[in-house]
Amino acid sequence: MSDLSPEKAKAYWARTSGLMWTMLGIWFFFGFAVHFFAPQLNTIKIIGFPLGFYMAAQGSLIAFVVSLFWFASKQNAIDEEFGVAEDE
């Protein structure tokens, strides 16, 4: 780690890992957890869509896309805070 002190490097990696686990949580929630309840959700209807079907066909996908853009900006903010972002 070029110009990071060992303590700062440790703190940087702790923050990065924390964000990683948050993202894995989002991934698990929208990839799996929501769909465990698909039979129950299907009793709710929104503009014709049974909600359980909607979540697997669209809802989770939208969450995936949004969370990836959020992750990119969040990790970038961490990089800048620790001064390890690439200069361009």
Partner: peptide
Amino acid sequence: YDGLAFVLGWTGGYLLVSI
């Protein structure tokens, strides 16, 4: 509905790629 496993599986993997 069962076919939606492909829709979910072929998109959600990108979270793993990125993080």
